[in-house]
Nucleic acid binder design. Structure first.
Length: 587
RNA sequence: GGGGCUGUAGCUCAGUCGGUUAGAGUGCCGGUCUGUCACACCGGAGGUCGCGAGUUCGAGUCUCGUCAGCCCCGCCA
């Protein structure tokens, strides 16, 4: 390994192999920066120490050739040391050279000068074999390995065993779209790739594997984002005879040890907040607590303000909520318009605001505020209030988005660099367009105190569900599960399923629960996101070796591809539209 | 499904108001050079301006469509 060579190695014989990173040909002398996974070291070729044949051969080597060098580590001459290089005190005086493999001229450079831009991402994905030689990506994947290793070690130390669950599995009726795999043996029938091993791990609990985990690959056929790939890896955990406290304790211990591997601060225990409190104070179930800015309820303070939007929204049962930006009056009109744009993008019709200066308040709302009303809102001279009126389901996401944007625009100081948070007591159901849906998934155990509300007021039923949040990113999500088949059936009925549907879709889970199920619960942590955040990567694609584009294509391998008529025939499929390979290529 | 940004040499980019033969740096090829490290210097090759229509005497530049990559909304129990 070349990257570890130091002055102390002076005089040692070395046989080093690697890639030609850079070359500098001075005529009589030739320098090659030799690279492998461990780093870069300078190899020098010269007539005084290199065999004649090898010296001649060295003239021919090009970027990214794979070479083998025999030589001696030598301290560099005075004045020829490179302080910017870890191995800059030494070089390898090559006695002989072998070219192990000739490389074509690389389509995209592996080496980059200090100010060079990265090649276009499309090219980086097309030529992934070259892009993956970059030190940044190599380090990302090395850290990923170390985090996976630490996960396995930690879980093993705490008595968990890793069990693999099927990749070819059964379609789940709700949630994300499934990737389907046709069955050749049973024509017209399909396997689904798992969206998560959820049901399998619950069944493992019933079978008595009371502490399970898995580094599990999951698949969802939904549109992509910078932090969303169609296949991803989660740390999947489930345990029996446990309560919320047990899971949170194990998992914050795990995450703290992962953070330690990555050199990130994670003091235990992590702070906690209920879902309701998070929504009320931050408008989000994953607030970024690196900066302090909380939503205020100005319903009472503005009760006497004669402003149409406010009056109609409050009359309809809404609240007046907003953010008070101390010293925010310094924001330009343009910056405030940017915040209004953020509010609109979040689904709000607009964003009200009020600025207070020495000579009074201004702005769409400010014009209507008396000094007393401004005082009641806590608006002081120099401050800016950003206000939304309406139901919480509208104002919360709006103000959450505006909060993040305002923190950026105002350059709010961070009170901590690494903000960890447990958000607990998520509601079991959420109402969307008048229809009840599972807040997390339909297996969440409701709070014992709220069971009586299941059929009467389901929206108020709190669940034993929790999320782990880091700097505003959801790292993971879990709950205590329902282990009573009758209760499980009740919850599914509340979700609008009739008994026939329940038996068809969840029959095997209900049957398993009826076999004597221990109380159990667990969590799933997003491995890719953890690595992304720990490495400071802007995209998941930089922490996955072979990612997909936003159109779910693999540019390097060229997947997906059309299949030929023979393959379709063998599967009993016909295509109504689209591309079929007329080709010879087999399956 | 919707909105936005980008697309010019292998790579990163510039290209004025629509007007002569589309430029630079780097890489590539050839040459000089014994301490370089973004080596230096000399010379050379390299272009379907993403693709297709349209407007125009004339389009890299304007219009429409389309493809690809990226960002966002929807979606992601």
């Amino acid at each position: 390994m070349v990257g570890g060579l130091r002055a102390a190695d002076d005089g040692s014989e070395q046989a080093l192999a690697g890639w030609v990173h850079r070359r500098r040909n001075l005529g009589g002398l030739l320098f090659v920066d030799l690279r492998d996974r461990s780093g870069v070291v300078q190899v020098s070729f010269g007539p005084d120490w290199t065999e004649a044949g090898s010296l001649e051969l060295a003239q021919q080597i090009g970027h990214e050739d794979v070479i083998l060098v025999h030589g001696v580590v030598a301290a560099r001459p005075e004045g020829a040391r490179n302080e910017d290089m870890a191995t800059g005190e030494v070089e390898i005086r090559a006695r002989s050279l072998r070219i192990l493999s000739d490389a074509r001229t690389p389509e995209i450079p592996v080496y980059r000068a200090p100010e060079d831009e990265l090649p276009a991402e499309e090219l980086r994905l097309q030529h992934r074999v070259l892009d993956l030689r970059r030190r940044e990506l190599q380090q990302n994947l090395v850290l990923r390995h170390r985090l996976v290793l630490e996960t396995r070690n930690y879980m093993d130390r705490h008595g968990f065993i890793e069990i693999e669950t099927p990749i070819l599995t059964k379609a789940t009726p709700e949630g994300a779209r499934d990737y389907l795999v046709p069955s050749r043996v049973h024509k017209g029938e399909f396997y689904a790739l798992p969206q998560s091993p959820q049901i399998y791990k619950q069944i493992l609990m019933v079978s008595g594997f009371d502490r399970y985990f898995q580094i599990a690959r999951c698949f969802r056929d939904e549109d992509l984002r910078a932090d969303r790939q169609p296949e991803f890896t989660q740390i999947d955990v489930e345990a029996s005879f446990v309560e919320v406290e047990d899971i949170l304790g194990w998992m914050q211990g795990l995450v703290a040890s992962l953070a330690d591997v990555a050199g990130i601060d994670a003091p235990l225990p992590f702070p906690r907040m209920t879902w309701y409190e998070a929504m009320d104070r931050y408008g989000s179930d994953r607030p970024d607590l690196r900066f302090e800015l909380e939503i205020r309820d100005w319903t009472d303070a503005t009760a006497e303000v004669d402003f149409g939007i406010i009056r109609t929204q409050v009359a309809a049962g809404g609240r007046v909520r907003g953010l008070l930006l101390s010293d925010g009056a310094r924001l330009s009109r343009r910056q405030i318009e940017e915040l209004e744009g953020v509010a609109k993008a979040a689904g709000a019709p607009g964003l009200l605001w009020a600025k207070r200066a020495d000579d009074g308040t201004s702005g769409p709302l400010g014009k209507f505020l008396s000094p007393g009303q401004a005082d009641a809102m806590g608006l002081r001279v120099g401050d800016l209030a950003l206000v939304a009126a309406g139901s919480d389901t509208l104002t919360s996401p709006t103000l959450a988005a505006v909060r993040d944007a305002a923190a950026r625009v105002m350059e709010l100081p961070r009170v901590r660099e690494h903000a960890w948070l447990w958000v607990t007591d998520f509601p079991v159901f959420i109402e969307e367009d008048g229809v009840l849906a599972a807040g997390h998934h339909p297996f969440v155990m409701p709070h014992a105190d709220d069971l009586e509300l299941l059929e009467t007021d389901p929206a108020r039923v709190r669940g034993t569900a929790y999320d782990l949040v880091y700097n505003g990113t959801e790292f993971g999500s879990g709950s205590i599960r329902i282990h009573d088949p009758e209760l499980q059936r009740r919850v599914l009925r509340v979700l609008g399923l009739d008994d026939a549907e329940i038996d068809q879709k969840f029959g095997f889970l209900l049957a398993a629960l009826a076999a004597g199920a221990p109380p159990h619960g667990g969590i799933a942590l997003g491995m890719d996101r953890i690595v992304q955040r720990f490495t400071g990567s802007s995209s998941l694609r930089d922490v996955v070796a072979f990612p997909k584009t936003t159109a779910a294509r693999a540019l390097f391998e060229g997947a997906p591809t059309p299949v030929g008529p023979q393959e379709l025939e063998a599967l009993g499929l016909t295509l109504r539209t689209g591309k079929v390979n007329e080709g010879e290529q087999g399956a």
